[in-house]
């Protein structure tokens, strides 16, 4: 048993969907069990941080790390798992590029807490405010401290591979697990460090079955409440589909089902800033010359950050909004 290579999976600032996606690979999960010794996976088994700390450095072969680095506990675990693992995979959009939790980078940490605990939508009659330390009769208790901004995994530790998706598609996870097993059996080789695995190098349009023409956009509209041509590219129908800029690999599930791509697979190969790419692309095909008309067309996109950076703000060149940076002095490059 101890001869089997060791496997770990951890969740930091994430929703848990990535874990479900791994379980969603059905009977393939038995292959994981057959080929690996699972040493640390909080969602699936009981394990203590101290057990992990006690392990020899580099003794875990493969760690799938999902979630962004939002607090000091996330950061500690990221560093710890980095030390203990030979192969560290940033697993899912949060670890790769921050994902939805990364949108909180628009506001300072303190403001996030205030919003969560002290606005009308919160039922908090006693005005409870979270404290990092608390003296209980049993002794002093600590809860993790929020970092000034959410960071992606590779902004904190070195990452070997990236696996995008919110969550990664199960068939892609299965394929990656297959690959690792083949490598273990000496039948395949690992890709070069830094590779994005479990995804394509083009964009969602590449897998999208919809017909397309030379693009000109006269207006943007939202998806509901109007008849859409089921065969024509959504973007050409004014639906702001992010498929043009989003890495392929999902099989174009959303546009195939009639909903626009919202970008969960992140930027395509070689693209530095997903939102910037998308903005230039949209701007290039907006069919108007008059400033007023251009403005009118762009007003059809109600939430600009949500449209262009929903999954990518923390991993973008901007990384965070200015206000989030200031009070804590930023977090360096």
């Amino acid at each position: 048993m101890s001869e089997k290579p060791k496997f770990a999976m951890y969740w930091a600032a994430s929703c848990g969907g990535c874990e479900i996606a791994v379980l969603n690979i059905d009977e393939k999960i038995l292959d994981v069990d057959a080929n690996f010794e699972v040493v640390f996976w909080p969602v699936a088994m009981d394990a203590k941080y101290k057990d992990l700390e006690a392990m020899e450095d580099g003794s875990i072969l493969l760690t799938l790390f999902n979630g962004g680095i939002r607090n000091d506990e996330n950061e500690y675990l990221a560093k710890l798992l980095r030390r203990k693992s030979k192969i560290l995979v940033a697993f899912g959009s949060c670890a790769c590029e921050g994902c939805v939790p990364g949108l909180a980078n628009l506001s300072p940490a303190e403001e996030i807490i205030t919003t969560a605990f002290h606005t009308v939508s919160t039922d908090n009659p006693n005005g409870v405010h979270p404290q990092p330390t608390y003296k209980a009769p049993e002794g002093e208790l600590h809860i993790p401290r929020l970092l000034p901004v959410l960071k992606t995994l590779d902004q904190v530790v070195e990452v070997d591979y990236y696996m995008p998706g919110c969550p990664p598609e199960s068939h892609q996870i299965a394929a990656v697990i297959d690959l690792v097993i083949q490598v273990l059996q000496g039948k395949a080789e690992l890709p070069p460090k830094g590779t994005v695995i479990g995804a394509g190098i083009s964009t969602v349009c590449d897998e999208c079955p919809r017909k397309r023409n030379v693009k000109t956009i006269k207006s943007f509209t939202r998806i509901f409440g109007q008849p859409l041509d089921p065969e024509l590219c959504l973007l050409e129908q004014g639906i702001p589909c992010n498929g043009i800029a989003t890495r392929s690999g999902c099989g174009a599930r959303c546009p195939s089902a009639g909903a626009q791509c919202i970008g969960c697979y992140g930027p395509a190969e070689g693209v530095l800033d997903y939102g910037a790419r998308l903005i230039t692309a949209y701007a290039s095909v907006v069919d108007a010359n008059e400033p007023d008309e251009i403005e009118r067309i762009l007003d059809g996109i109600p939430d600009l950050v949500g449209q262009f950076y929903r999954f990518n703000l923390a991993g973008s060149l901007l990384k965070a909004g200015q206000t989030a940076w200031k009070p804590n002095g930023g977090n360096g490059r």
Binding site: S202, C205, D206, R212, V214, K215, I244, S248, A268, S284
Partner: peptide, 11 residues
């Protein structure tokens, strides 16, 4: 290999 054929550039 990277081109998705989105046709943004075409016009």
């Amino acid at each position: 290999a990277q081109c998705s054929g989105c046709r943004i550039c075409n016009g």
